[in-house]
Design a protein around this nucleic acid. Structure first.
Length: 973
RNA sequence: GCGCAUGUGGUGAAAUGGUAGACACGCUAGGUUUAGGUCCUAGUGCUGGUUAACAGCGUGGGGGUUCAAGUCCCUUCAUGCGCACCA
């Protein structure tokens, strides 16, 4: 049994791994030096004069379920890249914190009946242990959780920054749309000095105490400011999910009107809630995408969500004819108001044949008495419809009796209330052009309204006419009146001409619209950050001063949310925090003596904590600033290293693509506000974003649909059938492919991998499975390949029986030297391009090469170990130390290659004849085209092939290829 | 419905328009081991051919550009993802 005492196997791997993990921790090997504050390194403010490199994973959420092998994929990838960058001489910052507030933690706590803080903290502990065994090169001093009071303090502080700011459009314009969030005190000054008139209704309503700021009551002043604050309370229609017992942001509601979490029905309900004025940043959130290095797909998703569109806002006179009026003579009909619409196709105004407004549009208050009932009925009916019904059902509407006057044709167009028009987009009203819009077309068909086509494709409308709208490009037709003639123009030109006409008459204005809505920010949940906000007895809103932060969660008798029947649209939210009256009602001194206040009983959504955690990694213990300006500048400012862009930000952010429009949009918004207010120097939080794929797995179901353990499946290959069949306990089962999970009985845990193979093998296998951004199936059976590689490398360096060092300090032979330099070259390129799978293949190739040598030169072994170390750091450290090095290799330079060794003496050149490879020649890489051609035609094989044919063409690409085109000789008898 | 991505051996996958299948799993044969496993060596896209030489075919299907296409273009099918009354 003493044989192979020193063989690299799971047991030895585990010993080595624990040893090095402890040593790294003890030595602070992966501590990243800050230029300022408590984490400055030995080199002080210069942080070693090294270029910074900040690599980051998406915040893990410590659920109680435990990890499977899919979870660490991204963490391993960032670790590999971080270690590689460190070996490129960078000061690498890599740490991991925990996102710990939010619904899943709360739900898990409810299942177990324990307090969310206890379950969350124990989950974090478990997850830390599981991840620790991976040997991730994290700076553990920089870890934290969003529930830590020292973290909550700054989350609340940022909230107050938003609360105490407003968006100043004039300032934005004068400063190139940058620096537009300004302190609310500047707005107060403007109102005080009457530089700015008060908003309606305050400006014109003398009953409210006059038109000046000074004679508004404190409550009124508070209400006025609330209209401008970036974090504000308003009474507005919000997404209420009775089954969840909380309101939700638009981003958390799916297209078919269900909550993203739990799939509960969501209803629009008028409620007083907190929102974030993200819409003010719509343009910058869109434009900023051009300055960052993100996957196009994610950028597209954000662009779509923000939904920028360039169009025209047009005002129309609204007429309400009585029965005795002549509806054809606009002059005789009384005007009751104006209606404004938004369109991206102003060129089609000649084709507008009716108007449609959202059922709750205010113009409908002008309908005549006889119509009121039918409008009210329709409004009630529309309110009950679910999103799906609206979308899939036939379009409906009801005529209002009102007409809009088309300014370009002087025609009176009937106005319908129709629920296919959304009240919260544009102006909630449209000019309907059935000839140019399929939705309007469907409606016009149903209600028998005229259809006028204003654009015709070059080949004519043909079958389209009367059957569908035409939305494509073409020539403008039917667009001429005494005011304007667009006929014959192309769409773009016609649009411009129409816009000019509308603008000159001051009835239209070119306008950019956004689909993005403000971000609903309050939740009726227990497990979240409390708002640092109190209300006095007059209802005036007060921000707590920084000295009173953090506001910690109180204990409540019951932290469960009050939920309702999921279809009970009439229910109203009740917050768990309101159950603790002692906490809720409080006496505070906010600077003008102790007074009674009531706290805000909502909590923040869990996005709050994940909106700024990257800043906390920079300065985890900072108490004076959200982040020390020096540290922020060093790590994040524009052009802080050779790959950082004009916007600055985290150098590499790796995570799944599921956060495309939630976390990633919110975080960008907060960052822009912090930038405007001067707290950070980067314009965007994340410079490069990379979406890793997922590890998936096969799962097996029996005939009843129950999952059976995937690792106990027998594969049955029936002879003559292409597809495999599967059985479990002699019962046929059926394969499906998808996620890995406990409930699917196909989960494999990292712990099993550590035990069977060790962390290095596990890491190496995950990195070699395939490209990082592609999802791939887990296959435990294949892991052995990674272990064999490490074992062979170990055996090349260490005698398995004696433990002696086998390498010798000899010069490598020419071939080995070449192989080594080529490997270094290739691996360096692949690491930069984030292709670990091919880099590993080349490392295996080099190891296979040296395995065949009698004596392994030390230099080659060392370089191989260094290159391997980002993937398998423990075995690499062990070999490195056995090779005679005292210091950790973590800060060694990555091997460099000498270009002279990349050149081959002889290479194989291919001769193609009519596209087929017919001969291979061994030639010098420096061979000229002429020489290669000559050599090719001298080859007997080539001569055999072209004998009897006429050479038509020869293409030579020395030294790799020569292509000869021949055709049959025309025999001239 | 619209948009995007992806289709390569038995499997995971490689291939700046220039030798398709690197590397690995699996499989086959041989060797070491007094069992199995480990480990070592060789082979392994498919078809034909004697196990050889060699030939033909081959990157979802069809068509095109090119001396040359997995790669570029058109078209079509399948799968996945995203969006979906946004005027």
């Amino acid at each position: 049994m003493d044989e192979f005492r020193y063989r690299y196997n799971a047991k030895l791997a585990n010993d080595i791994e624990r040893k090095w993990q402890e040593k790294w921790l003890r030595d602070g090997t992966f501590h990243a030096a800050n230029p300022a504050g408590d984490l400055v390194g030995a080199d002080g403010e210069h942080a070693g004069d090294k270029q910074p490199f900040f690599v980051m994973d998406m915040f893990p959420y410590p659920s109680g379920a435990g990890l499977h092998v899919g979870h660490p994929l991204g963490y391993i990838a960032t670790d590999v890249i971080g270690r590689f960058q460190r070996m490129q001489g960078k000061n690498v910052l890599h740490a991991l914190g925990y996102d710990a507030f939010g619904l899943p933690a709360e739900q898990y706590a409810m299942q177990t009946g324990e307090h969310p803080r206890d379950t969350t903290e124990s989950n974090i502990k478990t997850m830390r242990e599981q991840l620790k065994r991976l040997g991730l090169a994290h700076d553990e001093r920089r870890s934290f959780a969003t529930i830590d009071p020292s973290y909550v303090k700054w989350t609340q502080w940022i909230f107050l920054q938003l609360f105490n700011s407003y968006y100043d459009e004039t300032y934005a314009k004068e400063n190139g749309d940058i620096g537009s969030a300004r302190p609310i005190s500047e707005l107060v000054e403007k109102y005080e000095s009457s530089t700015l008139t008060l908003p309606e209704p305050y400006a014109s309503d003398n009953n409210l105490g006059g038109k000046t700021w000074q004679n508004l009551t404190a409550k009124e002043q508070s209400d006025v400011l609330m209209l401008s604050r970036l974090a504000y309370i308003s009474e507005s229609p919000v997404n209420w999910a009775p089954g969840l017992g909380t309101v939700l942001a638009n981003e958390e509601v799916t297209a078919d009107g269900l909550s993203e979490r739990g799939s509960f029905p969501v209803f629009k309900k008028e409620l007083r809630q907190w929102s974030m004025r993200i819409t003010e940043y719509a343009k910058r959130l869109t434009d900023g995408l051009d300055t960052i290095d993100w996957p196009e797909k994610i950028k597209t998703m954000q662009r779509n969500w923000i939904g920028e569109s360039l169009g025209t806002s047009i005002k129309f006179c609204v007429l309400a004819p009585y029965e005795y009026d002549d509806p054809n003579d606009a002059n005789t009909v009384p005007q009751v108001g104006e209606i404004e619409v938004y369109t991206t196709r102003a060129d089609t105004l000649f084709g507008a044949t009716f108007f449609a407004v959202a059922p709750d549009h205010e113009i409908l208050t002008n309908v005549q008495d006889g119509r009121r009932q039918s409008i009210a009925d329709y409004q009630a009916q529309a309110g009950k419809k679910s999103a799906v019904e609206k979308m899939q059902g036939e379009k409906t509407g009801v005529f209002s009796g009102l007409y809009a006057l088309n300014p370009v044709t002087d025609m009176m167009l009937p106005i319908y209330a129709a629920d296919y028009v959304l009240s919260d987009y544009g102006t909630g009203a449209i000019m309907a052009v059935p000839g140019g819009d399929q939705r309007d077309f469907d409606f016009a068909k149903k209600y028998d309204i005229d259809i006028i086509y204003t654009v015709s494709p070059a080949e004519g409308l043909g079958e389209i006419e009367g059957n569908a709208a035409y939305t494509g490009d073409g020539v403008v037709i039917n667009s001429k009146s005494e005011h304007l003639d667009l006929n014959g123009l192309d769409v773009e030109t016609a649009k411009n001409k129409m816009n000019e006409w509308l603008t000159s008459r001051q009835i239209g204005e070119v306008q950019t619209n956004y689909r993005l809505r403000d971000w609903l920010f309050s939740r009726q949940r227990y497990w979240g950050e409390p708002f640092p906000i109190v209300y006095d007895d007059e209802g005036v809103v007060h921000a707590l001063p920084e000295t009173l932060l953090p506001v910690e969660l109180p204990d409540v008798p019951d932290y469960k949310p009050r939920t309702f029947d999921s279809d009970d649209a009439d229910s109203a939210p009740e917050t768990p925090l309101s159950r603790n009256k002692e906490w809720l009602e409080t006496d505070l001194d906010l600077g003008d003596g102790v007074k009674h206040y009531r706290r805000d009983a909502n909590t923040m959504p869990n996005w709050a904590g994940s909106c700024w955690y990257y800043l906390r990694y920079l300065d985890p213990n900072e108490t004076e600033h959200v982040v020390d300006p020096k540290n922020d500048e060093y790590w994040l400012s524009p052009f802080h290293n050779e790959t950082a862009g004009e916007a600055g930000g985290v150098d590499l952010y790796v995570g799944g693509q599921e956060h495309a429009v939630l976390h990633l949009l919110y975080a960008r918004f907060w960052h822009m506000v912090l930038y405007d207010l001067g707290h950070v120097k980067s314009k965007e939080p994340f410079h490069k974003l990379f979406n890793q794929g997922y590890i998936e797995a096969y799962a097996y179901k029996d005939a009843r649909g129950a999952y059976v353990p995937a690792d106990e499946i027998m594969v049955v290959n029936v002879l003559g059938q292409r597809e495999n069949r599967y059985s479990w306990n002699d019962v046929e089962v059926f394969e499906e492919y998808g996620k890995m999970g406990k409930s699917l009985k196909n989960a494999v845990t990292p712990d099993e991998m550590y035990e069977q193979y060790g962390a290095d093998t596990f890491r190496l296998y995950e990195m070699s499975m395939g490209p990082l951004d592609i999802s791939r199936p887990w296959n435990t059976r294949s892991v052995i390949g990674a272990e064999r590689f490490l074992q062979r490398l170990w055996r090349n360096v260490i005698d398995e029986n004696t433990g002696e060092l086998l390498v010798k300090d000899t010069e490598p032979d020419a071939e080995t030297l070449k192989a080594m330099h080529k490997t270094i070259h290739y691996v360096t390129v692949e690491m930069r391009e984030m292709r670990p799978n091919t880099a590993i293949a080349k490392l295996i190739g080099l190891n296979n090469h040296i395995t065949k040598l009698d004596v392994i030169p030390k230099k080659v072994a060392e370089n191989l170990v260094l290159m391997l170390s980002p993937f398998a750091p423990h075995i690499s450290e062990e070999l490195w130390s056995r090779l005679g090095h005292e210091k950790s290799l973590a800060h060694e330079n990555f091997p460099t290659y000498d270009a002279k060794y990349l050149v081959e003496d002889e290479i194989e050149s291919v001769v193609q004849i009519n596209g087929k490879i017919r001969a291979k020649l061994s030639v010098s890489p420096n061979i000229t085209d002429d020489e290669l051609e000559k050599k090719a035609f001298e080859s007997t094989k080539v001569q055999e092939q072209i004998d009897g044919f006429e050479v038509v063409k020869v293409i030579v690409r020395a030294p790799k290829i020569i292509s000869i085109v021949v055709k049959e000789k025309v025999q001239d008898w």
